[in-house]
């Protein structure tokens, strides 16, 4: 119970860019700046999936990323949540085409809990999505016996 309480108030996120224009990553970087100050909401940023609770996935899931994203996802300890950010991650956006080079949407590769549309979304929209949808997902986790 204490774990659940703490998890709601300190969400550790890991950003994964799977081949887009990096616009969404810049918006996430803007969240870390003084104007938005991500850590005041209890969201902490890591580059390591092993110490994070939630994955922020941006980009079109390029061919090279399709297997590696699953590996990445498996490295995140349970309970875990995935937030797909941007038009690329949701549908392929302007990179959408009929070929195996683009694996979008992300939900085809790994289960997604929250989606943030936009090209790119505003930093505030990303923060709201993480705060609104990640804690319930983490709380709904029950350990398999």
């Amino acid at each position: 119970m204490i774990k659940e309480f703490i998890r709601k108030r300190s969400i550790h996120v890991c950003l994964v860019c799977t081949g887009g224009c990096n616009g969404c990553d810049i918006e996430v970087a803007a969240l870390l700046s003084q104007r938005y100050d991500l850590e005041q909401y209890g969201i902490y940023y890591h580059n390591n999936p092993r110490e994070s609770d939630a994955l922020l996935v941006t980009g079109t899931v390029a061919k090279q990323w399709q297997e590696k994203l699953v590996e990445f996802y498996n490295k995140v300890p349970e309970p875990k949540a995935v937030v797909a950010i941007g038009a690329c991650a949701l549908s392929g956006g302007i990179f959408q085409q009929e070929s195996d080079k683009v694996g979008a949407p992300v939900s085809d590769v790994i289960p997604v809990d929250a989606e943030v549309p936009g090209c790119p979304p505003r930093p505030a929209e990303i923060a709201i999505a993480v705060l609104k949808y990640v804690p319930p997902t983490l709380a709904s986790y029950r350990r398999k016996i």
Partner: peptide
């Protein structure tokens, strides 16, 4: 409008 691929141009 399909929000998931709209780029708000």
């Amino acid at each position: 409008i399909n929000k998931s691929s709209c780029i708000r141009c």
